[in-house]
Nucleic acid binder design. Structure first.
Lengths: 120, 120
DNA sequence: CGCATAGTTTTATCATTGTCAAACGATTAA
DNA sequence: TTAATCGTTTGACAATGATAAAACTATGCG
């Protein structure tokens, strides 16, 4: 098992995080990782509706911005949100973004993480 | 006095707001509006270090994303953050972003809103 | 070894964007 | 009316970015 290179917590830049989160596909990835803590790239990418190379590009963007952490186990790569690091650096930011993303309408026809859940 | 066209609160999109905030120049504009509620474009633009047409482009981006509201009085245009609207739509988001921007290092050599304030 | 799987990298294409300069529009002042 | 001020729009350009296809890498399985 090995970790991929990630930016240190202190060097995570606000505008880069916001930029990483400003793409609907990446936001959907983040929402999925918020709902289910750790997932393989394959798993996350399944319903994104983009080519696997495009998905890979988004994984990299999120990783380089400091939003996700990736570790490799065998052939699989597992991603997870860097919740603690982001909370430490930008308190409340990720929570606010996730709350906004989860309560709002699904970005663009992709199945929402809350789809199928009754209103009450 | 007249108002410029702005998106309705309900139609403000999360990823568009994040994208608007993902540029260092626009972040600096937002920080200035957070420190001093309402200012003229001229005032805000003075120390941004970009051409006035570039600044104007950023004002528009912020306005169309629903981040700022602009009203015109004579030759002057006054901008202010749409704090209430953003809070209503994405609770806690703007506060978290501003806190992160104000406590962090100045984006790119521009004078920070807290520059000159002693550490303790 | 040979093959399948998981994901990245490379290459190419097309759209978006940040920037400045110059022209323009609207408003106020002389 | 003429000139000055404030800001936008247009045009051009270089850089970035989202996308897909194809080639590639690395790992595990038989």
């Amino acid at each position: 098992m090995r970790l991929l290179p990630h930016p240190a917590t202190e060097s995570i830049q606000l505008t880069e995080v916001l930029r990483a989160l400003s793409d609907p596909v990446r936001m959907e990835i983040v929402v999925r990782l918020a709902v289910q803590v750790e997932q393989t790239c394959s798993n996350v990418g399944e319903e994104l509706g983009v080519h696997k190379s495009t998905a890979s590009h988004h994984y990299r963007t999120l990783r380089e911005a400091g939003v996700v952490m990736t570790r490799q186990v065998g052939r699989l790569k597992f991603m997870r949100l860097r919740r603690d690091d982001l909370d430490a650096r930008f308190p409340g930011l990720l929570d606010a973004v996730l709350a906004a993303a989860l309560t709002g309408a699904p970005p663009q026809g992709l199945p929402s993480a809350t789809a199928g859940v009754p209103d009450a």
